[in-house]
């Protein structure tokens, strides 16, 4: 791709990736959401995180990998426990990353 094409591509991607994030905030800020819609929206965060967590563990490389050789599956067990017990993002990340490093280097799967 030529330099001009690359810049054009970056500009185009910028528009389509930023508009969906900024438009709703710009348009809906003054709008009072109906009760039912507010309730529905309150479930979006748990649903999104459930989906993201599941995909990042069971499809870490972009395709579903549901088997004991998936290290992410093993690493998520202590991570979940620490998250529930400590409710600290720092300790959860620490334990998750260390577990993963140990598994990667020593599990030999």
């Amino acid at each position: 791709m030529s330099d001009t094409s690359i810049l054009l591509m970056i500009f185009g991607v910028s528009v389509v990736s930023l508009l969906p994030r900024m438009l709703p905030v710009a348009i809906l800020s003054r709008w009072e959401f109906p009760q039912l819609l507010q309730k529905w929206l309150s479930f979006v965060a748990p649903a999104v995180l459930g989906g993201l967590a599941a995909l990042s563990i069971l499809a870490p490389k972009g395709f579903i990998h549901f088997s004991p050789s998936n290290l992410y599956l093993w690493a998520c067990i202590p991570t979940f426990i620490v998250a529930i017990k400590t409710r600290s993002l720092f300790y959860t990340l620490l334990v998750g990353i260390i577990t993963m490093a140990l598994l990667y280097n020593f599990a030999g799967i």
Binding site: P46, L49, G50, L52, A53, S56, I57, P60, Y72, A75, C76, T79, F80, A83, I84, R87, S88, L89, T92, L93, V95, G96, I97, I98, T99, M100, A101, L102, Y104, N105
Partner: peptide, 18 residues
């Protein structure tokens, strides 16, 4: 991957989910 950084985002999603 060797230093486990590939698990940073999954760990974060798990924690935020909790």
């Amino acid at each position: 991957d060797k230093i486990g950084l590939n698990f940073a985002l999954p760990a974060m999603y798990i924690c935020l989910l909790v």
